[in-house]
Design a protein around this nucleic acid. Structure first.
Lengths: 253, 253
DNA sequence: AAATCTTTGTGTATAAAGTACACAATTGTA
DNA sequence: TACAATTGTGTACTTTATACACAAAGATTT
């Protein structure tokens, strides 16, 4: 919660720089130890959490805005974000618009506006990034998909819609390049799919199917040193991967 | 093109009623005689064409806005519209903002604003609707997919993206309920799929696959009176159809 | 009325993909 | 050295997809 002075400053700056009525919210998925995680912010003096979000500058392309917002609010840079839906209920941000109702008259208070929010989601390598909270947030941290805290506004719905979009993507596009380290084993990749889908897959059939997509290269040397049999290491064949991204897998018709 | 007086009136009303910076554009697909069609508007004194579009009222849910806009601009009512993408390039409506540059100063001219446009698409029964142009348009008419005129703004891109979204939908959702008459023959439904996909399908395999979805009911009596063998009539099983809409077909994983 | 043309309904053989398993190989540990 | 855990590879079976062939029904032609 902002002080009156902070709110006035923010509102003035926002009116100067941002487009009215439009916001962006990002659902960033990460993956660690077999668990899917989502990046959340906890505002100061607030029990519930938020997805990292923000506003679009007056002459800024929206993809660029999504990237800037994610960087400003979480420190994450150069993440591929995928637009997936617009949330346009007139009362979706009621919590926010009510919050400062008594602090500042509506016409001065930026948050009294109605905002449509454009949802973006991303998949990132858990170890490749270091989340940093911004000035408005107490913490910025990963939360397990099956241990989600209560979210503010309609961010629960945005999160669920993003997860649906991600699962749909799994059916006709490759996934993992932005989420896995450069080299990984087949069981590791399988854990990613299982975490996204929320169910177990058959080890052998998974391998056959993934290899059938033709987007993986197997390294000559297996990973040594671990317990048990040394697994082969794979990396994505970037050319085929990109091709599969645009072409899609399952023809359908 | 509006006169100065019209533009002033429109801008005043728009500022009073609509949200800044947000517009909606609708891609309405229809189907007739084996051809896919798109509903287009031609503005007065203009060679190029437009998708039916408009603005969101200050406290209106966006789905409702899309329906109102479609009705206002084309006369089509109670159409199921599906949101598919937001077009947010800062210069996407340059044509519009330049159009009245010399008529009215920017701060008075509604169209000098930047607009993000939310794209919606729909499938309608060609015979169930009667397109009516609004006051801004010379004509409102169906155009063949393979005989499209030049479009204004970025509406070419919006149209193409909608077609891609539609084709994607074909792979995991049933289609046709909003597009076919209540009863139809298998070859008629097949022509719809062929028109959307832009390619021929095998008659027998098409039938098996569609029936396999379990969303069709076969009438007891075939359609008589036509030339050649009397084909069976089918109608959608609405319960299963709705179920398939939410569940999706091809499991994938 | 018979032959013919067109369109629709149904079936079948083959190939590809998806599913459910079994077993051997490797590595660390008991 | 036996054992447990994990990984690599194979195989039989089922389901789905694809490519065809042929029969039936109605209108048209001869």
């Amino acid at each position: 919660m902002l002080t009156k002075k902070q709110l006035i400053e923010f509102s003035d700056e926002a009116r100067k720089n941002y487009l009215d009525h439009i916001s962006i919210d990002c659902v960033v998925f990460g993956f660690h130890e077999g668990q899917m995680k989502v990046l959340l912010l906890q505002p100061h003096d607030e029990k519930k959490w938020l997805l990292p979000g923000g506003f679009v500058m007056k002459r800024e392309p929206i993809e660029q805005a999504a990237n800037r917002i994610l960087k400003e609010r979480t420190g994450l840079d150069k993440i591929f974000l995928q637009q997936f839906y617009v949330f346009g209920d007139p009362d979706r941000a009621k919590f926010h618009s009510d919050l400062y109702k008594d602090t500042l008259p509506d016409h001065e208070n930026w948050f009294s506006n109605r905002f449509l929010s454009i949802g973006y989601y991303a998949l990132v390598d858990f170890f490749g990034v270091v989340p940093q909270p911004d000035q408005f947030s107490e913490t910025c941290t990963w939360r397990d998909l099956d241990d989600m805290p209560e979210l503010l506004l309609d961010h629960e719905q945005i999160f669920k819609t993003a997860l649906d979009a991600l699962r749909l993507q799994l059916n006709h596009q490759p996934i993992g390049y932005n989420l896995m380290p450069r080299e990984f084993t087949m069981p590791e990749l399988q854990k990613l799919y299982e975490a996204i889908l929320g169910k177990k897959l058959d080890r052998r059939n998974f391998q056959r199917r993934i290899l059938g997509f033709g987007i993986l290269n197997r390294a000559e040397q297996p990973r040594k040193g671990g317990a048990h049999k040394a697994p082969y290491l794979y990396s994505f064949d970037l050319e085929n991967y990109q091709n599969a991204l645009t072409e899609g897998f399952r023809g359908g018709w």
